[in-house]
Simulated assay, not measured.
Amino acid sequence: MCKLGKAWELNREGMQACNNGEFDKAESNLKTAIQMSQCKSKKIHRATLHNNLAVVLQMSGKMEEAIHAYDLAIGFLNPGHKGQAALIERIESKREQLIQQLAA
């Protein structure tokens, strides 16, 4: 069942947990939010959730998982849309930095 309001609540709680260093809680909340948002949410919303998950994964040292989450976020965005194209560039930059860190 799609519960978008609850998904955004979990997103907020997850990012607050991340800010408090509670990465396991943050990851769990965001993964649940992503599952809840799949049926009716707009692609930009799903991209936001995956991007937030990527940030949490990156901060908790799960670099390969973070790269995958960034890839998923980018996949939901429209490069032909001016605002989303700029967002794609920012996410790709973060993704590339992680790849370089892993290669070093």
Rank of each mutant, 00 (worst) to 15 (best):
M1P: 09
C2F: 10
C2S: 12
C2V: 03
K3N: 13
L4Y: 11
A7N: 10
W8N: 08
W8Y: 11
W8G: 02
E9Q: 08
L10V: 02
L10G: 09
N11D: 13
G14D: 01
G14Q: 08
M15G: 11
M15E: 06
A17M: 03
C18E: 09
N19T: 00
N19I: 00
G21K: 02
G21Y: 14
G21V: 01
E22F: 12
E22Y: 02
E22M: 12
F23G: 05
D24P: 00
K25E: 14
A26I: 06
A26L: 00
E27K: 04
E27V: 00
S28H: 08
S28E: 02
S28G: 10
N29D: 09
N29C: 07
N29S: 01
N29Y: 07
L30K: 00
L30Q: 05
K31G: 03
T32M: 01
T32A: 05
A33Q: 00
Q35T: 03
M36T: 02
S37P: 12
C39L: 12
K40W: 07
K42I: 09
K43G: 07
K43E: 06
K43I: 03
R46I: 03
A47L: 01
T48D: 12
T48V: 14
T48M: 13
L49C: 04
L49Q: 07
H50W: 02
H50F: 01
H50M: 09
H50V: 04
H50K: 03
H50Y: 01
N52D: 04
L53E: 03
L53A: 06
A54M: 02
V56W: 01
L57A: 11
Q58G: 11
S60Y: 03
G61R: 09
K62W: 04
K62N: 11
M63F: 14
E64I: 10
E64V: 02
E64D: 14
E64L: 03
E64H: 05
E64P: 05
E65A: 01
A66N: 02
A66S: 13
A66Q: 10
A66F: 04
I67Y: 08
H68L: 04
H68S: 09
H68T: 07
H68R: 05
Y70R: 03
Y70K: 05
Y70Q: 03
D71H: 06
L72V: 10
L72H: 00
L72R: 09
I74H: 07
I74N: 04
G75Q: 01
G75V: 04
G75R: 04
F76H: 03
F76N: 00
L77S: 11
L77D: 08
N78M: 13
N78P: 08
P79M: 02
P79E: 15
G80M: 14
K82D: 06
G83D: 10
G83M: 08
Q84R: 04
Q84F: 10
A85Y: 11
A86Y: 15
A86S: 12
L87W: 15
L87M: 13
L87H: 14
L87V: 07
L87I: 13
I88G: 13
E89N: 14
R90A: 11
R90N: 10
I91R: 13
E92M: 13
S93I: 11
S93F: 13
S93G: 13
S93Q: 15
E96M: 10
Q97L: 14
Q97V: 10
Q97I: 09
L98K: 02
I99T: 12
I99D: 01
Q100T: 14
Q101I: 15
L102N: 12
L102D: 09
A103Y: 05
A103M: 15
A103W: 08
A104H: 09
